[in-house]
């Protein structure tokens, strides 16, 4: 039974569609990776799930976001506030700027416990200490009264996870949680997320452009490009034998997949800007397998292999080649 079911989600800025027909399914305890280049619509898709789109002009143009049987897209603002932080927690790319600089870490964790659960100061403080211990911050009793600037980057990310999990949400949206961290700390934070998933049964929607992160953590994968889903399926299948040329190109661009001395390949060209999406398949101007049909017709998401779906006219040809 899925915890979160997103169907046909479209996000528009005024009349222009930025994200179209996005479907996501997330079960309890599952880690779903949402992958794509900058500007592919990953982040605003996440924000749309929380109904926290960054500009007034951006709005959900259609589709449904069903969490535990309730359509979040239809809730009013007051009801939505009881979902944020309580049923969905969110962590962000840059922990340094997403923590309140003049508030003690413990108070930031305690604040939402007191706000949403009406806990007493003492209870909330106890929860803050407990959460800091859970996210692996040493000496939590002393550290609850520290300010964010007294923490290192990795500790701030841990603290932000503690803040997001303060009211025990079942779903955690992680928007590029490791991008601002260095590689060793990255690995620790990812391990922490998996550990929390195991202990709390947390479902995690992990947004990233780093396939290395995906390989370490995710159960399944959704690849986005120019506001549309290109391919979706179990991680192992996608990484081993991509059914879409875009996924294949992304994989080739990972350091380590080419020979050590060779130059790292890149996808030629730039991702299209919103509002200037090409007709037909949106990836066709950069696709190595482009044919006439790609310029005319948009490929539908169709079963490629097992539980996997891909939006390419040549899915079967790709499969044959690999």
């Amino acid at each position: 039974m899925s915890l979160l079911i997103v169907r046909n989600l479209s996000i528009a800025a005024g009349e222009r569609l930025l994200v179209e027909e996005v479907d996501l399914d997330l079960a309890e305890g599952e880690v779903l990776g949402l992958v794509g280049e900058s500007g592919s619509g990953k982040s605003i898709t996440c924000r749309a799930l929380m109904r926290l789109l960054p500009h007034d002009q951006l709005h959900i143009a259609g589709g449904s976001v069903t969490l535990k049987g309730r359509d979040l897209a239809r809730l009013d603002e007051a009801e939505m506030r009881k979902v944020r932080g309580v049923e969905i927690g969110m962590i962000f790319q840059n922990p340094s700027s997403h923590l309140d600089p003049v508030m003690r870490i413990g108070d930031q964790i305690a604040e939402s416990v007191r706000y949403h659960e009406g806990a007493s100061t003492k209870e909330a403080r106890g929860r803050a200490v407990e959460l800091l211990r859970q996210v692996g911050i040493p000496d939590p009793v002393r550290r609850v009264s520290a300010y964010p600037h007294e923490f290192s980057g990795g500790m701030r990310q841990r603290a932000m996870i503690a803040v997001a999990l303060a009211c025990r949400p079942k779903l955690l949206i992680a928007d590029e949680p490791t991008t601002a961290l260095d590689v060793t700390v990255q690995a620790q934070v990812l391990r922490l997320l998996l550990d929390l998933r195991d202990r709390l049964g947390l479902a995690i929607l992990l947004v990233t452009h780093n396939l290395g992160v995906v390989a370490q953590t995710c159960d399944s994968l959704t690849v986005m490009y120019a506001g549309r889903i290109m391919e979706r399926g179990p991680k192992r299948d996608l990484l081993r034998a991509p059914a879409h040329p875009y996924t294949e190109a992304l994989l080739k661009c990972q350091p380590g997949s080419a020979k050590p001395a060779a130059q790292l390949p890149a996808i030629p060209g730039q991702p299209p800007l919103a509002g200037a999406f090409p007709p037909g398949c949106r990836f066709h101007p950069r696709c190595p397998r482009v044919a006439d049909i790609c310029r005319r017709e948009r490929p539908a998401l169709s079963p490629a292999q097992g539980p996997r779906v891909a939006a390419c006219h040549f899915t079967s040809a790709l499969r044959a080649a690999s």
Partner: peptide, 27 residues
């Protein structure tokens, strides 16, 4: 009001007045 920690506060479901007087104003 468009800063990151305010977005984070909104993602925790806080109301407008709490965000303004507890998070923006002290800063």
């Amino acid at each position: 009001k468009t800063s990151d920690f305010v977005t984070a506060a909104r993602s925790l479901g806080f109301g407008r007045f709490r965000i303004l007087f507890r998070h923006i104003l002290p800063n």
